[in-house]
Amino acid sequence: MATSYSSAWGGESFDGAKAALFLGDRLLVIRRDDRPDISFPGSLDFPGGGREGDESPEATLAREMREEVGLEMGRAEMLWRRSFDGATRPGLVWFYVLRMAAAAQAEIVFGDEGQGWSLMAPEAFLAAPDAVPALQARLRLWRGL
Protein backbone atom coordinates (compact mmCIF):
# COMPACT_ATOMS: atom_id res chain seq x y z
CA MET A 1 0.00 0.00 0.00
CA ALA A 2 1.44 3.37 -1.00
CA THR A 3 1.45 6.07 1.63
CA SER A 4 0.63 9.72 1.15
CA TYR A 5 3.68 11.86 1.73
CA SER A 6 1.99 15.09 2.71
CA SER A 7 4.66 16.62 4.84
CA ALA A 8 4.82 17.35 8.54
CA TRP A 9 7.95 19.26 7.57
CA GLY A 10 6.49 22.75 8.00
CA GLY A 11 8.93 24.47 5.63
CA GLU A 12 11.89 24.84 8.00
CA SER A 13 15.39 24.80 6.59
CA PHE A 14 17.01 21.39 6.10
CA ASP A 15 19.96 20.00 4.17
CA GLY A 16 18.98 16.50 3.08
CA ALA A 17 17.10 13.25 3.61
CA LYS A 18 18.02 9.57 4.04
CA ALA A 19 15.92 6.42 4.27
CA ALA A 20 16.27 3.00 5.77
CA LEU A 21 14.38 1.24 2.98
CA PHE A 22 13.17 -2.27 3.71
CA LEU A 23 12.54 -4.51 0.72
CA GLY A 24 10.53 -7.17 2.48
CA ASP A 25 12.46 -7.78 5.69
CA ARG A 26 15.92 -6.73 4.43
CA LEU A 27 17.48 -3.27 4.21
CA LEU A 28 18.71 -1.76 0.95
CA VAL A 29 22.28 -0.66 1.65
CA ILE A 30 24.67 1.29 -0.57
CA ARG A 31 28.47 1.12 -0.32
CA ARG A 32 29.71 4.72 -0.46
CA ASP A 33 32.40 5.75 -2.91
CA ASP A 34 35.90 5.35 -1.51
CA ARG A 35 37.12 8.91 -2.04
CA PRO A 36 38.99 11.08 0.47
CA ASP A 37 36.82 14.15 -0.28
CA ILE A 38 33.60 12.66 1.18
CA SER A 39 32.52 11.77 4.69
CA PHE A 40 32.64 8.09 5.60
CA PRO A 41 34.34 6.90 2.39
CA GLY A 42 33.68 3.25 1.59
CA SER A 43 31.08 2.92 4.37
CA LEU A 44 27.67 1.29 4.30
CA ASP A 45 25.00 3.93 3.75
CA PHE A 46 21.29 4.29 3.01
CA PRO A 47 19.72 5.93 -0.05
CA GLY A 48 19.37 9.69 0.15
CA GLY A 49 21.36 12.85 -0.07
CA GLY A 50 21.37 16.61 -0.24
CA ARG A 51 18.51 18.96 -0.93
CA GLU A 52 18.37 20.80 -4.25
CA GLY A 53 16.62 24.16 -4.53
CA ASP A 54 13.45 24.46 -2.49
CA GLU A 55 12.62 20.74 -2.41
CA SER A 56 10.67 19.33 0.53
CA PRO A 57 12.30 16.47 2.48
CA GLU A 58 10.07 13.97 0.64
CA ALA A 59 10.93 15.44 -2.77
CA THR A 60 14.64 15.32 -1.90
CA LEU A 61 14.42 11.68 -0.89
CA ALA A 62 12.26 10.71 -3.87
CA ARG A 63 14.77 12.27 -6.29
CA GLU A 64 17.75 10.69 -4.56
CA MET A 65 16.10 7.25 -4.55
CA ARG A 66 15.41 7.50 -8.29
CA GLU A 67 18.98 8.65 -8.99
CA GLU A 68 20.72 6.14 -6.72
CA VAL A 69 18.66 2.96 -7.07
CA GLY A 70 15.88 3.66 -9.59
CA LEU A 71 13.02 3.08 -7.13
CA GLU A 72 9.95 5.29 -6.73
CA MET A 73 9.44 6.42 -3.14
CA GLY A 74 5.71 6.91 -3.70
CA ARG A 75 5.32 3.13 -3.85
CA ALA A 76 6.76 2.71 -0.35
CA GLU A 77 4.89 2.52 2.92
CA MET A 78 6.19 5.13 5.36
CA LEU A 79 6.82 3.57 8.77
CA TRP A 80 8.55 6.49 10.51
CA ARG A 81 10.19 9.87 9.95
CA ARG A 82 12.08 12.29 12.12
CA SER A 83 14.54 15.17 11.74
CA PHE A 84 18.07 14.98 13.13
CA ASP A 85 21.30 16.92 13.13
CA GLY A 86 23.33 15.98 10.06
CA ALA A 87 25.63 12.92 10.22
CA THR A 88 28.20 14.17 7.73
CA ARG A 89 27.98 17.96 8.10
CA PRO A 90 26.17 20.58 10.23
CA GLY A 91 22.51 21.12 9.46
CA LEU A 92 19.15 19.41 9.73
CA VAL A 93 18.39 16.19 7.85
CA TRP A 94 15.27 14.04 7.67
CA PHE A 95 15.44 10.31 8.28
CA TYR A 96 12.74 7.95 7.04
CA VAL A 97 11.99 4.29 7.52
CA LEU A 98 10.17 2.94 4.46
CA ARG A 99 9.02 -0.48 3.28
CA MET A 100 8.43 -1.93 -0.18
CA ALA A 101 7.65 -5.46 -1.25
CA ALA A 102 10.68 -7.74 -1.60
CA ALA A 103 9.90 -8.01 -5.32
CA ALA A 104 11.04 -4.38 -5.77
CA GLN A 105 14.61 -5.75 -5.69
CA ALA A 106 14.14 -6.78 -9.34
CA GLU A 107 13.52 -3.13 -10.26
CA ILE A 108 16.72 -1.70 -8.77
CA VAL A 109 18.86 0.17 -11.28
CA PHE A 110 22.04 1.30 -9.56
CA GLY A 111 23.08 4.88 -10.36
CA ASP A 112 26.52 6.41 -10.66
CA GLU A 113 27.13 7.20 -6.98
CA GLY A 114 28.62 4.56 -4.72
CA GLN A 115 30.35 1.26 -5.34
CA GLY A 116 27.30 -0.97 -5.28
CA TRP A 117 24.26 -2.05 -3.32
CA SER A 118 23.14 -5.05 -1.32
CA LEU A 119 20.29 -6.24 0.85
CA MET A 120 21.05 -7.14 4.44
CA ALA A 121 19.27 -8.03 7.63
CA PRO A 122 18.82 -5.00 9.88
CA GLU A 123 20.83 -6.79 12.60
CA ALA A 124 23.77 -7.13 10.20
CA PHE A 125 23.67 -3.40 9.37
CA LEU A 126 23.48 -2.50 13.06
CA ALA A 127 26.51 -4.70 13.80
CA ALA A 128 28.58 -3.65 10.78
CA PRO A 129 31.80 -1.88 11.83
CA ASP A 130 31.88 -0.04 8.49
CA ALA A 131 28.35 1.44 8.53
CA VAL A 132 27.74 5.17 8.98
CA PRO A 133 27.37 5.37 12.79
CA ALA A 134 24.60 7.99 12.82
CA LEU A 135 22.46 5.82 10.54
CA GLN A 136 22.94 2.86 12.85
CA ALA A 137 21.86 5.06 15.78
CA ARG A 138 18.77 6.27 13.95
CA LEU A 139 17.74 2.76 12.98
CA ARG A 140 18.23 1.63 16.60
CA LEU A 141 16.07 4.53 17.80
CA TRP A 142 13.27 3.55 15.41
CA ARG A 143 13.50 -0.08 16.53
CA GLY A 144 13.41 0.98 20.19
CA LEU A 145 16.83 -0.52 20.96
Rank of each mutant, 00 (worst) to 15 (best):
T88Y: 14
W117R: 00
V69H: 01
F14T: 06
S4I: 09
P36I: 09
G24L: 06
L119E: 04
E68I: 06
I30S: 00
E12I: 13
G16P: 07
L119V: 07
R138Y: 14
S83H: 14
R89F: 08
I38P: 00
W80K: 09
Q115T: 11
D85H: 14
L23V: 00
R89H: 08
P41D: 05
D112F: 10
R140N: 07
L135I: 11
A62I: 10
F95W: 02
V109M: 00
D15P: 02
E68N: 01
G111I: 02
R66I: 10
A134K: 15
G86F: 05
D45E: 12
R82L: 04
A102W: 01
F84K: 06
V132T: 12
R66V: 12
M78I: 10
L23T: 01
A102N: 00
A127W: 01
P122E: 15
E107T: 02
A8Y: 14
Q136L: 07
Q115V: 09
L21F: 13
S56Q: 09
Y96T: 04
R81Y: 13
E107Q: 01
F46N: 01
R63W: 06
A131H: 09
G49L: 05
G42R: 11
L126G: 03
I30C: 02
A17Y: 15
G49A: 11
A102R: 06
R143E: 08
P41I: 09
P47R: 07
R66C: 06
G11M: 00
D54R: 14
L79G: 10
V29F: 04
D85M: 08
L28I: 05
P57F: 05
A137G: 12
L71I: 01
L79I: 06
I38C: 11
E72T: 09
I38E: 04
L79H: 07
I30R: 04
Q136H: 05
F95N: 01
A137C: 10
L126A: 03
A17D: 11
A59P: 14
F125T: 05
L135Y: 15
L27V: 04
L71E: 02
E77A: 13
L135E: 14
M120N: 03
F110W: 03
R82E: 08
G70S: 00
R35D: 08
S83G: 06
P47W: 05
D37K: 08
R66T: 10
L141A: 13
A137T: 13
E113L: 15
E52G: 11
Y96W: 03
A103E: 15
P122I: 09
K18W: 14
L119M: 08
P129G: 11
G24E: 11
E123N: 11
G114N: 04
M65S: 05
E12S: 13
R66F: 11
F40P: 05
Y96P: 00
